[in-house]
Structure formats: structure tokens, C-alpha cells
Design a binder for these strands. Structure first.
Length: 674
DNA sequence: AGCACGCCGACT
DNA sequence: GTCGGCGTGCTC
């Protein structure tokens, strides 16, 4: 009897995306367990491939003679069986390659982390934890969802929440004397998810929580450390070194933990998974940038189905994707109970141009409220764009100033700075207007800096703070001040802002694209939820359904309406989409192979810009969710069929490795130009 | 990817 | 007769 290892190869080639059988040499038999890294020969002995052992069997299904595993890289099993199953299913869903998914899920080898893990005391287990109630919802509501391993779309508690400080860590300050720890202020959603995760952990199961932003990771970690001991919280984020990731990965496998982080956290090999959760799933940061470009939400859905874990999508503004699952009754609809929602006051823009420019943008009611609130607490002013202005025009003729190098719009990062291109970053030294020859420019529009300057003049003696992408600010003190921030960069305040002004809504809504309304609702609600419980939030220049939804804080309505529209148009997420790019022949053949599985007309093929490969075309097909497996399998087969033949250019010279067909599923980007 | 296998034109 | 062109296909 021979021992056979079934190995997944670390190769992006679709034709190698299956298991290969190798003989396990006798001397490796003890250490060769599922999950270990190996090197194996491929085709001719000299060539080696890296891979992971997925399974050990007595007899493989390969009829020929087996090659032997060349090396066992390390005896540490880094690929957990459930993560292999997850990667396989995620790749299959996206018509992609499992090893591409594994690259996201498993960090490269780190010998130090492995040595430390091998030296651990395997008999040690952390003390059990107890869980506080989940506050802000009907008693036992979310506890029930977690205990039943159910699934829910959860409307977040829309204000900051004070959690009691970490137990047992309170008395070590600088002679504060009294042992009570300071309360920890966290966003409502972070408190909810921390309490939910504590419940999972109290049942000795793990939780995995993915959040879009690095700052969200920090907020969530603070909330978790207020309710759980630090050895129960494991972080996975993009800013970690490889060593930290490798350590976190092994830590997650040893005892039940709460694994938190950005996109990759959803792949954390957490022991005995009991809960998967996401905060603000509509955030575009959840779209993976590496092949096979799978959205974290979809990974979470696959993993929840495989593991049977509870699943929570927490947000203020609901995404159309989650709304779809609610309407299918696949997700429960959970809303907070007896919490204070922001008091949103929609105002129609006033055009009285008296006084300062900023005053003209802000209706007098909002202006008075902000001035009044800024006497006793911080006021948040949300604007659409950073810098001094949204653009520059010629001071003489008013013509828009453009970059000489790339033609992009010029902007001004701060008052008096040399104009700079917003696209390529080139400095426009010695700018001359091509229309009239004048050499001076003036700003148009209102960036964060310009708004701050104007508010500074209007509110003398008030501290003005600016927060944007280039000057990030995590937190400001709960003292009188005015904080001008671009959408998404709003700092937190312990206890919340006294008042919130949402200024540039109209401008944010003017952008083209399928998800604009969803995004803008997220920007508004996430900012409004930084206000103190029940604080006023002025929504400037907005009327209609969106204003009503904000004022009533009923945010599933717009998602429902939006989804209804998309169903009529056969747009995602009412349907799924597949984008096929390549030679005319390959794309046409792929479209024909999908015959019968699609919904709505085929879009294209149309020529697309591809400087490396002229003659490239793209087609988009829509298909119902029920046909997902069939469509993905068909397209994967087409990709494999095309991957060995390489395309011939006009000159007759063959291009190396230029695939004739590329396939991407659920890429909504082509629709954002609609 | 790479590299072997294989089936048609000019050569010792 | 065979040497070698690169189209096709496979990799345990």
C-alpha cells in the first residue's frame, strides 16, 4: 500500500487548477499531513512546482505511475481543510483559479512564526469568556440569531456608544487611584459586532469580521478589547508585515478567536467558525483587486453556506445586494430597538449670496444650528472633495485650467500653492491660459480647505480642523470646534458631534454610475452616525425620496426602489454578469457556449482599448443566479481551451503568454458608465 | 509556462 | 530516406 498525497499546485494556469497525485516517500510520511507546503516535480523531473497537500489517501485516482514529493517545505499545516474548500468554491463561483484565491488566504512562509508556533504549549487553552448582552436591539434578538446560526441584515446603532473599559486593566494608570477604567467610545456598529463576537466566543466558537477600512479595524479592535481579553483577538490587515500575518494565521488555528481585518480577514482559518460578519458591505474597498476579483461579501456568503456559521451584514445604508437577499427571505431584517436616530433635516439650498461664500452654500437654519452647536461641542462639516477647490479656472476668461502633459484638471492643494494636475500629479509651473494667455488662476468649487478657510473667517475664535485623504485624522476631542472633512474621512468624537452638516450632496449625486445613490447614502449616514445620539444633521440641497428616507432614517426604502429598477433593466445585482475580453473569435465562441444560460441581450462584442493587444473585443452577458455554476464552469472550460493557443499579431510574430480569452464574473464596473 | 510529440517540406 | 519547422496538448 502506498501513501498518496493529493496536491494543489501554486500556479495561475487554469489547466493546472486541479489536484495532482504524488507518492509520499516513507521518510516524509509522519510529517506529510493535509495543509503542509511541498515542492513537487511537474512533467519533467527538473521542473518543480510549489504546492499544498490537500488530502492524504491510500490510493489515488491517477492510473499512471506517480512521481514522489520532492521536498516537504515545512511540517506546519498552513492551509486549513476548510480554507481549501472555501478557495475551491470561491474560484469555481468566479470561473477563476483556486491557487489565486489561496494567494489571498495564505501568506508566504515565515520561518520565525512557524518556529514559535511549533514551540507553543499545545495543552494551553485560554480561559473561557463571558459575553455581555448585545445592546441597542430587542432583548435577545441578535443573541438568538447567533445561537441559531441564522443570517441577518442588521441596521446599525446610529451613534457612538460607550463601552465599559477593559476589565482588569483599569488600575494601572498613573496614580488615578480609583480602579474604574475609562469608558471606551466606539461607533455603534463596532459595539454591536464586538458584543456579537463575544457571544460566539462564549460558546467556544470563532468569529470572523471584515471591515472596509483600516480605521474601521482600529475602531473594531478597540471595541473588542473592551469586551474580550487580547489573546482572543487576531488581526489581519493590509498594513501587516508578512511575519505578522503568518503569526496571526497560526494563532487563529490554535484556539477560538475573533479574527478581524479588511478583505483578507474573511479567509482567516479560525477554529470552529460560529459567526461571519461584515460592516458596511456596500463599501467599494471590499472589491478584491487581485484575480479572481471576488467581493468579500460573496466570499462571506460561500463561507457561511459551507460552515453553517451565523452571518451578519451590519450597515446604516443597505446595499442593493443585501436588499436582494432580504427580499428572498434569505436574510432576516433586524433593526435597532429604542435607539436615538440622527435628526436629519433636509434643507433646500438658499441662494442669498450675502456675506461669505460659505454662508451662501449653507442655508441659514443650518448655519445658525452649526454656530450654536459649535459653542459647546464639535461640529462636523462633510464636503465632497479635498484641497482648496475642486478645480482651477483662468482668472481672466474663466476657462477651465488643464494639465499640459495629460490634459487632466488642475487643482490647488492649499492656498497659493503651485497648481497641480489631479490625474498625473505634474506641477503646472508657469501656467498660461491657452485661450487668453493670462497667467493667473482662481479656484472654483469648494474643497475642504476652502470651506475651512471660509468657516474660519465666519466663526472667529473657533478651532477649525481639516481631515481628508492626505491629512487623515482618527479622532478629535469633544471640545468646541468645526471639523471639515471629505466624505469617508470624518474623524470620530468621543460621545459624538454636537451637529453635522452634509454640504455637497447634490454634487456627490451628480456623478454618473450604477451605485452612486447607494454610495451617497452611505456617506451621509456614516457621517450622521458620528453625531451624538439624536443630534441634528442638516442635509443641504436635497429633497425627494432620498431626503425623506434620511429624515425618517428608513434606509432600506431606497435600496428596495433601486433593486426594483435594476430588475427591470437586467442590471446587477438583480442578475449576475460575466465580462469576456479577448480576440473576436474567442469572445464570440464563449458567448455561443453560454447559449441558453443568459438573461437579457448580450452586450457587445465591442472593440476595447488595449494598447498591448490591438483587435481586443469585450462582451458582457447577464445571467440569473440560478445559472451561476453552469456559466462559471462553461467559461472556465473556454479559458482552459484557449489558454494553450496563443494569439498571433498582425506582423505574424507570436506573443508570449497573451491569453486569447479573459473572463471576469460580477464586475459591475462596465455598468458604472451607464 | 515550458517542453515533448507529431505530421509536412528541403536536405546529406 | 531523415532533419527540423512550430501547431497541439499535457503536466500526477
Amino acid at each position: 500500500m502506498t501513501t498518496v498525497a493529493r496536491v494543489v499546485l501554486d500556479s495561475p494556469l487554469p489547466q493546472l487548477d486541479r489536484l495532482f497525485d504524488y507518492r509520499v516517500p516513507a521518510e516524509l510520511e509522519d510529517d506529510c499531513v493535509p495543509g503542509v507546503r511541498v515542492k513537487v516535480p511537474l512533467r519533467t523531473g527538473a521542473r518543480m512546482s510549489d504546492g499544498y497537500v490537500v488530502e492524504i489517501v491510500d490510493e489515488g485516482d491517477y492510473p499512471g505511475e506517480l512521481s514522489a514529493i520532492e521536498t516537504l517545505v515545512s511540517p506546519v499545516p498552513v492551509l486549513a481543510p476548510e480554507i481549501w474548500k472555501l478557495a475551491r468554491a470561491v474560484a469555481d463561483r468566479a470561473a477563476g483559479v483556486a491557487s489565486d484565491v489561496l494567494r489571498l488566504a495564505v501568506p508566504t512562509r515565515q520561518v520565525r512564526a512557524e518556529k514559535a508556533w511549533l514551540a507553543r504549549d499545545p495543552s494551553w487553552s485560554p480561559p473561557p469568556v463571558s459575553a455581555p448582552p448585545v445592546t441597542g436591539y430587542a432583548e435577545g434578538m441578535l443573541e438568538g440569531v447567533i445561537a441559531e446560526h441564522d443570517r441577518a441584515a442588521v441596521a446599525a446603532v446610529p451613534h457612538p456608544v460607550a463601552l465599559p473599559g477593559p476589565a482588569g486593566d483599569g488600575g494601572d494608570g498613573d496614580g488615578d487611584g480609583d480602579g474604574a477604567a475609562d469608558p471606551v467610545w466606539v461607533p455603534g456598529w463596532a459595539a454591536t459586532l464586538a458584543q456579537a463576537a463575544a457571544h460566539t466566543l462564549a460558546a467556544e466558537q470563532s468569529a470572523v469580521i471584515a471591515v472596509p477600512d483600516f480605521r474601521d479595524v482600529i475602531d473594531l479592535e478597540r471595541a473588542l478589547l473592551a469586551v474580550l481579553p487580547p489573546e482572543r483577538v487576531v488581526r489581519f490587515d493590509a498594513k501587516q508585515t508578512n511575519g505578522q500575518r503568518a503569526k496571526a494565521l497560526l494563532q487563529a488555528r490554535t484556539h477560538p478567536v475573533v479574527a478581524i481585518g479588511n478583505r483578507t480577514a474573511v479567509y482567516a482559518p479560525a477554529t470552529d467558525l460560529g459567526l461571519i460578519a461584515m460592516w458596511d458591505d456596500g463599501d467599494a474597498s471590499f472589491i478584491e483587486q487581485r484575480a479572481p476579483y471576488v467581493h468579500t461579501r460573496d466570499v462571506a456568503l460561500v463561507r457561511a453556506a459551507q460552515s453553517g456559521a451565523a452571518l451578519l451584514f451590519v450597515s446604516h445604508a443597505r446595499s442593493t445586494d443585501v436588499q436582494r437577499l432580504v427580499e428572498l427571505h434569505w436574510l432576516q431584517d433586524v433593526t435597532p430597538f429604542r435607539v436615538k436616530t440622527p435628526k436629519v433635516i433636509p434643507t433646500v439650498q438658499q441662494t442669498s449670496a450675502e456675506g461669505y461664500a460659505a454662508q451662501a452654500r449653507i442655508p441659514s437654519s443650518a448655519w445658525r444650528a452649526a454656530r450654536e452647536a459649535s459653542q459647546h461641542g464639535p461640529v462636523l462639516v462633510q464636503v465632497a472633495s479635498p484641497g482648496f477647490g475642486t478645480g482651477l479656472v483662468c482668472a481672466e476668461c474663466g476657462e477651465r485650467a488643464h494639465c499640459r502633459i495629460c490634459g487632466g484638471p488642475l487643482g490647488s492643494p492649499h492656498r497659493g500653492a503651485t497648481p497641480q494636475c489631479r490625474f498625473c500629479g505634474a506641477l503646472a509651473v508657469g501656467f498660461r491660459c491657452p485661450t487668453c494667455g493670462n497667467g493667473t488662476v482662481k479656484p472654483v468649487g469648494q474643497g475642504a480647505q476652502r470651506t475651512a478657510d471660509e468657516l474660519g473667517r465666519a466663526f472667529p475664535g473657533t478651532r477649525i480642523v481639516v481631515a481628508d485623504g492626505s491629512r487623515p485624522l482618527d479622532e478629535v476631542p469633544a471640545r468646541p470646534s468645526v471639523v471639515v472633512a471629505t466624505r469617508g474621512a470624518e474623524p470620530s468624537v468621543p460621545g459624538g458631534y454636537a451637529c453635522v452638516l452634509l454640504l455637497d450632496g447634490e454634487k456627490m449625486l451628480a456623478r454618473e454610475g450604477l451605485r452612486v445613490q447607494e454610495d451617497v447614502l452611505r456617506f451621509w449616514t456614516n457621517a450622521a452616525a458620528k453625531g451624538a445620539p439624536g443630534a441634528e444633521a442638516y442635509l443641504v440641497g436635497i429633497g425627494g425620496k432620498l431626503a425623506t428616507a434620511m429624515a425618517l432614517w428608513r434606509l432600506d426604502g431606497p435600496a428596495h426602489d433601486e433593486l426594483t429598477d435594476r430588475r427591470e433593466l437586467h442590471f446587477p445585482p438583480a442578475v449576475r454578469v460575466a465580462t469576456m475580453t479577448g480576440t473576436d473569435e474567442a469572445v464570440t465562441a464563449a458567448v455561443e457556449a453560454l447559449e441558453g444560460a443568459t438573461a437579457g441581450p448580450v452586450l457587445g462584442p465591442v472593440p476595447v482599448e488595449d494598447d498591448a493587444l490591438p483587435g481586443t473585443v469585450r462582451a458582457i452577458v447577464r445571467f440569473p443566479y440560478a445559472h451561476g455554476a453552469e456559466v462559471a464552469a462553461t467559461l472556465k472550460a473556454e479559458v482552459i481551451r484557449r489558454s494553450s493557443t496563443r494569439r498571433v499579431l498582425k506582423g505574424g510574430n507570436r506573443r508570449r503568454a497573451a491569453p486569447t480569452l479573459r473572463v471576469r464574473l460580477d464586475d459591475a464596473e462596465p455598468f458604472s458608465e451607464v
